[in-house]
Design a protein around this nucleic acid. Structure first.
Lengths: 197, 197
DNA sequence: CCTCCGACCGAACGATTGTTCGGACTGCGC
DNA sequence: GCGCAGTCCGAACAATCGTTCGGTCGGAGG
C-alpha cells in the first residue's frame, strides 16, 4: 500500500512536470524532486523516462476514453451523442491541455512495443467519433468520407481545445453547443433555425 | 550572392531539422551538418539557436500570408474567398508540412522580443480569416462569435493539413470544396443540395 | 609583399541530460 | 545475534547540448 502510494505520487509528479514543461523539457531530476524522491530513488520504481511517458499517456487516454464513455451514456439521440463527444473533448482539452498536446505531438516518439498500445487507444477514440457520425449521417456516406469528416471534426476540436482561448468548465459547456451546431448545420445556418428538447 | 545562397541553405537545413526533431530536440550540430557547414561555421552566420527558429518561423509565415494574398485576389464572391483560404491553407499544409508543424508547435517557445513579431503575423492571418467569415455571415454575429468560428475553421484546417493523410496538390484541390461545403452547410446537409457556377 | 578582413573550422568550455553503481539504512524472519 | 531483501540515496558515468575561442586560409586593397 505504501509502495502503491509512492507509485501514484510518482505518476502525479510525472504528469505535472510533463504538463508544465512538456515531455522533452521535463527532466527526470525535476520529476524526482516533485515526487519527493532522489534521482536514483525514482529509478528504483521506474525503468526510465520512456516508461514515464508511456504511463502518463496511458493514463491520459484512459481518462479521456472514460470521460467519453460516461458522458455518452446519458445521451439518447445521435445529436446528443455528438454533443457529448464535443463537450467531453473540449473539457479534456481545457483541463488537461498539456496532456492533449502530448497525445497529439509526442506519442509517436515512444519506443515501439509501447507505442502500439497508445496508438490502439487513439484508434479507439477515433472509432467512437466515427460511430457517432455514422449514426448521424442522413444519406449514406462512404466509410472514407465518414473517416474524413471524423478527422475534420477531431481536428477542429483539437484546434479549439489547444488554442489558448478561454479555458474553464463553463467555457466547455457554453462552447460545445455552438461547435455542435456549426458542425451539424454549417456556418451559414442562422442560429434560430434549430432547437432541442 | 554566394553568401545569400549559404544563408538560404542554412534556413532550409534549420527548417528540415526543426520539423523532424522539434525545436528542443533539434541540435545545432545536425543543422550545421545538414547545411554542409561546421558547427562554428554556422555560428558565423547566425547568432544562436533562437534566431534560427525565428528566421524559419518568419519565412514560413511570410510565404503563407503571401500565398493567401495572391489566391484571394482572384476570388470575387465571399464563398470563393473562403474556398481560396481553405485551399491555400491545405496547400500550404501539404507542401510545407514542416513549416506548418513548426508554426503550430514551436512558436511559443521563442524568446520574447522575437515572439511578438511572430505573434503579430499569426494574428494577421487570423484577421484575414475573420474578415472572410464576417463577409460571409448571413445574420449579424458578434465579433467574439466570429472569432470563435474563425478559430474553429483554422483548427479544422490545421487538423486536416497536419494529419498524415493524403498530401498532394490534387488532394488540396479536391479536398478544399468538401471542407468548404461542410463548414458552410454542415454535416447534415446532403451533398447535392448546393452547386456552383 | 604586407596587411587586413571575412569565411570558416577544430577543439574545447561548462552545463545538463538519462542512466548506473555501490552502498547505507530499515525492518523482518530466524 | 545474523542475514536477507527492499527502499532509497550520493556520486559518478558517458553523452550531448549551446556556445565560444583561437586560429587557418584565401583573396582584395594598398
Amino acid at each position: 500500500m505504501a509502495i502503491e502510494h509512492r507509485y501514484a505520487g510518482i505518476l502525479e509528479a510525472a504528469r505535472d512536470v510533463f504538463a508544465r514543461r512538456g515531455f522533452h523539457q521535463a527532466s527526470i531530476r525535476e520529476i524526482a524532486r516533485t515526487a519527493d524522491l532522489s534521482l536514483a530513488g525514482l529509478y528504483h520504481y521506474v525503468r526510465g523516462k520512456d516508461e514515464l511517458l508511456f504511463l502518463v499517456l496511458d493514463n491520459a487516454l484512459d481518462t479521456l476514453l472514460g470521460a467519453l464513455d460516461q458522458s455518452r451514456r446519458t445521451a439518447r439521440t445521435p445529436e446528443m451523442k455528438l454533443l457529448a463527444l464535443i463537450q467531453t473533448h473540449l473539457d479534456f482539452g481545457f483541463h488537461h491541455a498539456a496532456e492533449l498536446k502530448i497525445i497529439n505531438r509526442d506519442y509517436d516518439l515512444l519506443p515501439e512495443p509501447r507505442r502500439a498500445e497508445i496508438a490502439a487507444k487513439r484508434g479507439e477514440y477515433l472509432q467512437q467519433g466515427l460511430a457517432v457520425l455514422r449514426e448521424l449521417d442522413p444519406n449514406g456516406r462512404s466509410g472514407d468520407e465518414l473517416l474524413s469528416a471524423t478527422n475534420l471534426l477531431l481536428g477542429m476540436l483539437n484546434g479549439i481545445a489547444t488554442r489558448p482561448f478561454l479555458r474553464s468548465r463553463e467555457d466547455a459547456r457554453t462552447l460545445a453547443p455552438k461547435v455542435g451546431a456549426l458542425f451539424l448545420y454549417g456556418f451559414l445556418e442562422p442560429a434560430e433555425a434549430h432547437h432541442d428538447s
